[in-house]
Design a protein around this nucleic acid. Sequence first.
DNA 1: CGTTCTGAAGTGGTCTGACCATACGTGGAC
DNA 2: GTCCACGTATGGTCAGACCACTTCAGAACG
Lengths: 257, 257
Amino acid sequence: MARTQLVDRDTQRTMLVVNHIRALIEDGTLLPGDKVPPEREFARMLNISRASLRTGIGYLAAMGVMKVRHGVGAFVADGPPEFGKASLSLMSALHGFQSWQMFEARIVIESQLAGLAAERGNDEHHAAMAEEVAEMFGSLNAPAEYLVHDVLFHRIVSQASGNPILTAVIDTITSALYENRLQTVEYSTDMRESAEMHREIYRAIRARNAQEARKLMREHLELARNAQQLEQHDEQGSEKALSARKIAVTAPVLRAF
Amino acid sequence: MARTQLVDRDTQRTMLVVNHIRALIEDGTLLPGDKVPPEREFARMLNISRASLRTGIGYLAAMGVMKVRHGVGAFVADGPPEFGKASLSLMSALHGFQSWQMFEARIVIESQLAGLAAERGNDEHHAAMAEEVAEMFGSLNAPAEYLVHDVLFHRIVSQASGNPILTAVIDTITSALYENRLQTVEYSTDMRESAEMHREIYRAIRARNAQEARKLMREHLELARNAQQLEQHDEQGSEKALSARKIAVTAPVLRAF
DNA sequence: CGTTCTGAAGTGGTCTGACCATACGTGGAC
DNA sequence: GTCCACGTATGGTCAGACCACTTCAGAACG
């Protein structure tokens, strides 16, 4: 024992800040969109240095709970819930996620989401969907623009599902796939068919036919997945490459930094 | 114009660090478990201050891409992929996620996961599941321990699904619910029934009966959700409370910090 | 010889205080 | 009245010092 343990300090400063703000959020003192005090002032209140406070704020910002605007202040996130933007993209690189796995996740979640949307969607959702479907038909010659409305349509469906958690998950996956799709959509030849599938999905949802909505959404995404895979040049063998590189990690890595 | 813009500085330092490390991960220079250079050294390499480097590392750590060990170093995450641990918990507080929404997400994803596990699971997975089921029957009198094996069983199922993305998502949701469940499991009276349902799920998966696995998993989770809701005292009205507080945000908030 | 303690070295964590960069509002110049 | 410049508030970065945790080699002890 002994070792005095002068450090009663609750825990790390970072977590002190995170927990403090978390508590303020949980008890309703801080609401989405609210501004927290200026760093210098806030740091003084918590009896920590400005640097430590910033670390904590940064942690929350990384997770999308807060957003910081240079010269203005730090705010509690107010938009739709979303996981750290780059998170999935980074994890993808880190764990070697495959494109088909992301599509599979989409299929699993979005087909169910379509079912829920059919059960719970309101007129407002229906109108927004119809709007996007129309836009899709109107931009059959502009792939990039088409893709935007495609993404929006799916987002509306997920919002209509009434489950913000699944919506956030899907948004994360979608945005990670977006960049990829933007490259392949240029070669897409079946946008008209795609647009018609969206229209059918919309009709099923509006008709509150959950089973049909699930089925159509699944078919639509499976088609999209297959189309994507055709464009994607084989990227297998990554496993091998990684193992081979694993050998030279200790020293050479340092030069590369 | 003019304004000289002395700041060619790529972008924010934080993103410089994040992108640098991301690049190293993406091109295979950095692999899971690898250590990055000491802060002082690394900062010098990137021509930024140690503080800025730390901000970037912190950002990656918050998203679970890196983990930092005091007195040892910073490493690329090597465990199973996972989103920022506290992320969902914080978002839950922030956006008022309801318990039923988390369960719904579980039902949607895990039932499909059970189906995939039935199609793709191998003997190793089957053995691990059997093990956990046995443990569950062996801890019917120890709720807390039972819950551990419950969680482990579901984790194995998700791993057997072969989709790391959905696995990561479920892990995040599960861990957010864990704390909650730990409180209510003590009052649980139907652990034996629960254990038997797990056994049935296991059998369906081992028999490669995907449809049955999905159905059983769904039923199991719906039961769990209902049981949970019975324990949960009504927490509605939170909407009202929040709105009421919204009024007094500008000034009073500052005192509270 | 083996075990245990000690202390130094390496590395992340925090603090301080200064200065840079951005956003915004206000007041003066036109 | 309109527009621009400057001041102020606030976040971003930097530098260097010092604190705290880990580890490990070597001394002290049995």
